[in-house]
Simulated assay, not measured.
Amino acid sequence: MSARLLAALLLALALPGCDEMDQQPRYDSYEESALFSDGKSLQSPPEGTLARDDPAWMAALAERPPMSQALLARGRERFGIYCAVCHDAAGYGRGTVPARGFPQPPSFHIQRLRQAPSAYFVDVITHGHGVMYSYADRVRPADRWAIAAYIRALQQSQDTDVARLGEAERARLAEAAHGE
C-alpha cells in the first residue's frame, strides 16, 4: 500500500469525526437555561462594566492626571503586576520573561525613553510596540497614566545626583551601599 493511499484512507476515516463539532451543546441568546438562577441564558454584564470604547472610559486617556502620591502608588502597583515581569522592578528590561528566552525590552533608562513624553508610554501600553502586545484590554486608561508616572519616578530614581538628596537620604544610601 503506497503512502499516498494510506494518507487518503486515514483522511477519509478522520473526516466523519469532524462532523461532531456541528452538534455541540449550546444555548441560543434568548433560550431558557438551567445554568443560571434567573433561567436565562443571556445574562446582563456585571455592575460597572463599560465597553472599551465607552466615552467615559476613554476620557481618562485624553488628559494626564495631576501628579500625586496616590497616582505614583497606583502606578507602582500596576507596574508590578503588568510590567515588571518583562521590564524588571527597576525598569532595566531584565525581568523574568526575557530571562527565559523572550526578547529583552529596552531599558526605561536609555536616553531615547528618558526624552520621550509620558504620553508615549501610555500609547505603548494602549497599542503595543515591537514585540510587546497591547495591554488595552488589561490596563484601565487611568492606570496607564499612573504607570507612566511611575516609569518617570523610576527614571528619576536611577539618575539623580547624590548632591541633590537630603542628608537623611544620603545616609540611607550610604548604609544600603555598605550593606551589599
Score class of each variant (00 low, 15 high):
Met1Tyr: 11
Val97Thr: 10
Asp38Glu: 07
Met1Lys: 12
Gly130His: 11
Ala56His: 02
Ala177Phe: 06
Arg144Ser: 06
Asp38Ala: 03
Gln158Leu: 11
Ala142Asp: 05
Asp54Pro: 01
Ala12Trp: 09
Val131Met: 08
Gly39Lys: 01
Val97Phe: 02
Asp161Leu: 03
Gln104Tyr: 12
Ala90Tyr: 03
Ser68Pro: 09
Val85Met: 08
Glu180Met: 09
Val124His: 06
Phe79Trp: 08
Gln23Pro: 02
Cys86Trp: 09
Pro66Leu: 12
Ala146Cys: 12
Ala119Arg: 15
Ala171Gln: 12
Glu63Asn: 04
Pro46Asn: 07
Leu10Pro: 00
Val122Lys: 01
Lys40Asn: 15
Arg112Met: 04
Leu61Val: 00
Gly101Ile: 03
Ala171Glu: 14
Leu10Thr: 08
Val139Tyr: 07
Ile110Asp: 07
Pro98Leu: 06
Arg114Leu: 08
Ala171Trp: 01
Ser134Asp: 10
Thr126Gly: 01
Pro98Trp: 12
Pro45Gly: 00
Glu169Thr: 11
His87Glu: 06
Leu35Lys: 10
Ile125Cys: 04
His109Ser: 00
Asp143Trp: 00
Pro25Asp: 10
Asp19Asn: 08
Ser33Thr: 02
Arg52Val: 00
Asp38Gln: 02
Cys18Gly: 06
Arg138Trp: 06
Ile81Pro: 01
Trp57Ile: 01
Glu175Trp: 10
Gly39Ile: 00
Ser41Asn: 13
Tyr27Cys: 03
Val131Lys: 06
Leu35Pro: 04
Ser68Gln: 09
Ile151Leu: 14
Leu9Cys: 03
Leu6Glu: 11
Arg78Ile: 04
Gln111Glu: 15
Tyr150Asp: 08
Pro117Ile: 10
Ser44Gln: 11
Arg144Met: 15
Leu9Thr: 13
Glu175Cys: 04
Ala99Lys: 13
Ala174Gly: 00
Gln111Lys: 09
Arg164Asn: 07
Met67Asp: 13
His87Cys: 09
Arg26Leu: 05
Arg94Leu: 11
Arg170Ile: 08
Arg114Ala: 07
Phe36Val: 07
Asp28Leu: 06
Cys18Ala: 15
Phe121Trp: 15
Pro98Gly: 09
Glu169Ser: 12
Ala176Phe: 06
Phe79Ser: 05
Leu42Ile: 03
Arg78Cys: 00
Ala34Glu: 13
Glu20Arg: 14
Pro103Lys: 07
Gly166Asn: 11
His178Glu: 14
Ala171Gly: 00
Cys18Asp: 00
Ala59Pro: 01
Arg94Met: 09
Asp161Trp: 00
Gly130Lys: 10
Leu10Lys: 01
Asp19Phe: 12
Asp38Arg: 04
Asp28Met: 03
Met1Asn: 10
Arg152Glu: 15
Glu175Ile: 05
Ile81Glu: 13
